[in-house]
C-alpha cells in the first residue's frame, strides 16, 4: 500500500483488459457497431437543432450556432454515459466482486473509460464540423483537453459516490435518471445563457456556477467562439474568486466520492 494503487502493474493490466472487453462488447451484435458511438450524439444533435435551432430560433445571435449546439450535446452525452455506466458498474460486475478480490475502483474506472474513448472519437467529429463551418483552428484548442479532464473528474467523482450508495440502495439509478433530466435543462446546452441573463442576471450566475455549465461554456469559448459567455467572464465580474467555486466543487466531489467509495468497498461483496 506504500505505492499508489493505480501504479501497481497488475491493476493496470486488469484496467486495460476490462476496458477492452467493455468497449468490444458495447456494440456487439449491431450492424453499425462502433458507428453508434458517433451516430447517437449526432442524431440527438439533429433533433435538438431542428426543434430549437430552426423552429424556436434559440440560436439567434450566436455565431456558429450548429457547432455550438453540437459541442454542448456531445459533452452532455459524455456526461450521462459516463455517470450512468460508472454508477451501474459495481452492480453489473457483481458476479466478479462476489468471487474475486481485486481493487473495486478498477471496475468503475474501466466503465467510465469507455465513455472517454467515445468522447474522444466524438471530439474529432466536433472538430470536423467546426472546420466545415469556417472556424479557424486556434491555439486555444490546445487548452480544451484541460476542460475535458475537469469534466471527467466530475463524472468520476459522481460515479464513485453514487455507485457506492447504489450497491445498497438501487433507488440511486432511478434518482440519477430523473436528476440528469433536470440537469439537462439547468445548464445552457440548448438555450444560450444570454436568454437567461435577459430575464435574471442572478439566475444566470447561479447556472454558471454549476461545474457542468462552466465546462460546456469554457469548451465553447476555447473551441468555437470567444464571444461565449463563461463563468470566468460573467461571474468573475462580480467577484474574481467566485469562478473557482465550480472547480472546487469538482475537487470536493472527487475526493469525497473516492473516500466514500473506498470506505464502502470493503463490504461490496456481502451487500451486492
Amino acid at each position: 500500500m506504500a505505492i499508489p494503487n493505480f501504479l501497481y502493474k497488475g491493476n493496470r493490466v486488469l484496467l486495460k483488459e476490462l476496458t477492452k472487453t467493455d468497449f468490444k462488447l458495447r456494440y456487439q451484435g449491431s450492424i453499425l457497431g462502433y458507428l453508434w458511438a458517433l451516430l447517437r450524439p449526432l442524431m440527438m444533435f439533429a433533433i435538438l437543432y431542428v426543434v430549437f435551432g430552426k423552429l424556436l430560433r434559440f440560436g439567434g445571435d450566436i455565431p456558429h450556432y450548429p457547432v455550438y449546439l453540437l459541442a454542448g450535446t456531445t459533452l452532455w452525452a459524455f456526461f450521462t454515459e459516463c455517470t450512468n455506466q460508472g454508477i451501474q458498474a459495481i452492480v453489473t460486475r457483481g458476479d466478479l466482486i462476489r468471487k474475486i478480490c481485486f481493487p473495486k475502483y478498477i471496475v468503475v474506472v474501466s466503465a467510465t473509460l469507455t465513455a472517454v474513448i467515445n468522447l474522444l472519437i466524438n471530439m474529432v467529429v466536433v472538430a470536423i464540423f467546426a472546420l466545415l463551418d469556417g472556424i479557424a483552428p486556434s491555439w486555444t484548442w490546445l487548452l480544451a483537453p484541460l476542460v475535458l479532464f475537469e469534466f471527467y473528474c466530475l463524472a468520476l467523482g459522481i460515479s464513485f459516490l453514487f455507485g457506492a450508495i447504489n450497491v445498497k440502495y438501487r433507488d440511486i439509478t432511478s434518482i440519477w435518471d430523473v436528476l440528469t433530466q433536470a440537469l439537462f435543462y439547468a445548464v445552457p446546452i440548448i438555450y444560450p445563457i444570454s436568454m437567461i441573463i435577459a430575464t435574471s442576471s442572478i439566475a444566470a450566475k447561479i447556472i454558471l456556477l454549476n461545474p457542468i455549465a462552466q465546462v460546456i461554456q469554457d469548451f465553447r469559448y476555447l473551441v468555437i467562439t470567444p464571444e461565449t459567455i463563461t463563468t470566468w467572464g460573467y461571474v468573475g465580474e462580480t467577484n474574481p474568486a467566485l469562478p473557482f467555486i465550480p472547480i472546487l466543487l469538482v475537487i470536493i466531489l472527487l475526493v469525497w466520492g473516492s473516500w466514500y467509495f473506498r470506505k464502502k468497498s470493503k463490504r461490496f461483496a456481502e451487500e451486492i
Binding site: 486488469l14 483488459e17 476490462l18 462488447l25 468471487k99 481485486f102
Partner: peptide
C-alpha cells in the same frame, strides 16, 4: 468467474488471468 460468452477462448484466458492479478 468473469468468463464472457462473447469473447474468444484466448481472450477469456487473458481476462481471467488479469482478474487473478
Amino acid at each position: 468467474v468473469g468468463f464472457n460468452p462473447e469473447l474468444s477462448g484466448r481472450e477469456n484466458i487473458y481476462l481471467n488471468g488479469a482478474l487473478l492479478g
